[in-house]
Every structure is written in C-alpha cells, then in structure tokens.
Amino acid sequence: MQIVETENLTKIYQTGLKKGNIIALDSVGLRIEQGEIFGLLGPNGAGKTTFVKVLLGITRLTSGSVLINGLPPEDSNSRERVGFLPENHRFPPHLTGSGLLLFAGQLHHLPETTIKERSTHLLRLVGMERWGTTKISRYSKGMAQRIGLAQALISDPDLLLLDEPTDGVDPVGKNEIKEVLKRVKSEGKTVLLNSHLLSEVETIADRVAILNRGKVVRVGTVDEFTTRGLRYEIEADIREERLEIPENVGKVIRVTTKLLVVELEHIDGVNAVIDQLRMKRISIKSVQPARISLEQSFMETLSDGEERI
C-alpha cells in the first residue's frame, strides 16, 4: 500500500515582482510504499524541503495531487500518524526537551499518561535522558537534532519525514540516528529521508529518488543505482596483460594482474568470459557485478541530465 502518493505535483513560489517565479517542484510523481526507507536526494535547492512541506500542508501545492494515507494535506487528520523533523528547526526556545515532547504529544491529542511513558522511552532512545529538563535554547545543534527526532516520534508515527536529520550531528550521533531509523523501520514504519549526504542514505535506504531543479531525474532501489548494467569485476591471477573477448560477448574495460573489468552485451556473457579465462588456465577468485558508490551514480545522473538540457 502507498502511504505517500503524489501525481504531477508542481509548486511554484511567487516571489517579488521583479524576480519572477521559482519552480521548486515540477510534475513530481512519487509513490512511497508502507514500510520502506525512501531517500530523497538532490543538490541544494533541488526542492527536497519543499516536497516534504507540501506533503504536510505547510506549503500549498500549485497543481497536481498529494495523498498521505489516502488523505489530502488540507485535511489535518492526514497528519495524525505522521512525525516530522524539519530542516533548520527552531523549536519553541522557552520549552525544555521534555516540555517539547509534552507539547508535541498534546498537539497530537494524546493522553498525558501516554506522552509521559513515550517521552521517557524516546529520550533514552535518542540519548538525551540527561537533558530532558534543560531548555532547548541551551542545546547544541546535535542535541537539538536528537530532541527533534524524539518529538517526531511522539505520535508513534506510521510515516516519519526527516529533512536533513544528520545536519550538525557528530559522527557518533550520526550512527545512533541510523540505528534509530533501522529500529523504526523494523517496526514496519515508513521513513522519508531528505539528504544531500549520499553516503549516509546509501547504507539505510531501500529506494531513492534523485531530484534536480524540481524534477525527479531517477527513481530506483539503491542496488539499481550502484550496479552499472552489465559491468562485471573478475578477480583472478591474470599473468598476461593482453586479454581479448569476442565483440558479441562484450568488451574489456580494464585489466590488471589481479582484476579484469568487462562490460557485457548480455548476461550470458559471464559464462563465455569465464570459459575463456579457464581455457588459459587462469585461476578465478571471484566474479561480481561492478559497483559504484551512490555518490558516483548521483553525479553521473545529474551530469546526464545537464547534457540533455
């Protein structure tokens, strides 16, 4: 079942008379399935923040449609089981950490006993149990981020929207946040993760979409992004540097004494290449699809887009 569904979602910000309009989102159609961690990637200004704000009804869409749990954002009930950690947040500075959780719970119409129980649990979960009675205005960026995550979880949300959650958090904290997200996912919840830090998304997201200048450039699983078609890496004891494979099988991209990289025309080509190596009595250690980092894939996707424009 889709928990988030957008179709032709377009958002145009009307700015001052002279500057004209900014198309922040351009016909975005995304479906986010229940229970997945979905990464929304893109350079600064791509429209990631605008996208989540439209989902929450904080920013009004210009055209197209959005459904959250089957409800449009204008219906405040659509946010009943949704948690949100905004980017660059400034939570009410007069509240303490626990006070923020209490207030968030009250705005979610939760009974006070439930809020108290969950607060204790959540403060521990984000490693802030010692700071619950300190005012938010005294928090460091990383602490504010942790309390922000806790308040997003107070309603025990089905859908968690996180906008640059690791912003300003130290490496230990980043790992802890990652652990929290895995735990949230294991409870069957859905997470939409906005980030420009790809290496972080790579390890936890199930699917990602790349947004550039308001357009979805590519959507797919992390695997689809990081494997490159039919490119294979074959680890072997290659003594001779001159290796040739028939043209209808594929071509050699790179060869060293330990590694052969080939780009195949067809998946069956793997066998042909192995046969050839074995015929030359080359000992094979491993065969695997060549992988690139999400970052590399991202850069390539973006530059492809540039070429087309």
Partner: peptide, 12 residues
C-alpha cells in the same frame, strides 16, 4: 521559519 513547521506538522 523553522518554528512554524513544528506547529503545522501536527494534526491541527
């Protein structure tokens, strides 16, 4: 900015 998101992301 940054504060209003807190209120407006709630079911109210």
């Amino acid at each position: 900015r940054g504060r209003t998101e807190f209120y407006m992301s709630k079911p109210i």
